[in-house]
Amino acid sequence: MNDNIAIRVENICKSFGDGDSFIEVIKDASFTINKGELAALVAPSGTGKTVLLMMIGCVNEPDSGEMWIGTEKVFDNRWLTKETRKIRREKIGFIFQAHHLIPFLNIINNLILLPQTNKTDEKTSKAEARKLLHYFGIADKEKAMPSQLSGGQNQRVAIARALINNPQIILADEPTAALDTQRSVDVMKILKKIALEQEVAIIMVTHDDRMLPYCDRIMKIEDKKIVFV
């Protein structure tokens, strides 16, 4: 197994319903994303982007296939662990269309929630959170509530939250959809930068063609399969 691989998917399939309502959404999809790569997943609505994202994010179970995160095989026609939530907590970061920060936690607490769940002590997790806030230029906002920050600032906090546990892959679901062009470009630059600097693979669902130049690879879903453009 190549140490440079962040995620490897082999022949995963996903279908819903049965009889007349049977729909096959993903069929024998295979791809590999290396560490440090920013990959875009582009496809029209209803072709299974979110389904694919939920499968590689260990949220929804594929019907069949194999999947590795880093060197660890996590799926082989079934989850190889009951603790898929632990895999998400330790190996995967999520960025959403909206920032989806916890509204009743201030910025620093939003960041340290996951490390503390992973039993990292408060001092270490706060130091790591402050480093990230500084990296994203919002170090002075650690005591602020999400409602007190702008959309762009909140999205940067959300990216910081996705990074705080040093994940191997980040799954981003249209992270620029709620932002204006300038802020979208800023976010793309940040994603590109962290992919390279943190050696993390980023898979980003997007409908915005203007963001594609920032991506290393572009994946499409065609005939229920993944193809690279």
Partner: peptide, 13 residues
């Protein structure tokens, strides 16, 4: 519920 879904998605037990 939205926050709870997010907490579950990002891995909170």
């Amino acid at each position: 519920m939205k926050e709870i879904s997010i907490m579950k998605l990002i891995g909170l037990p």
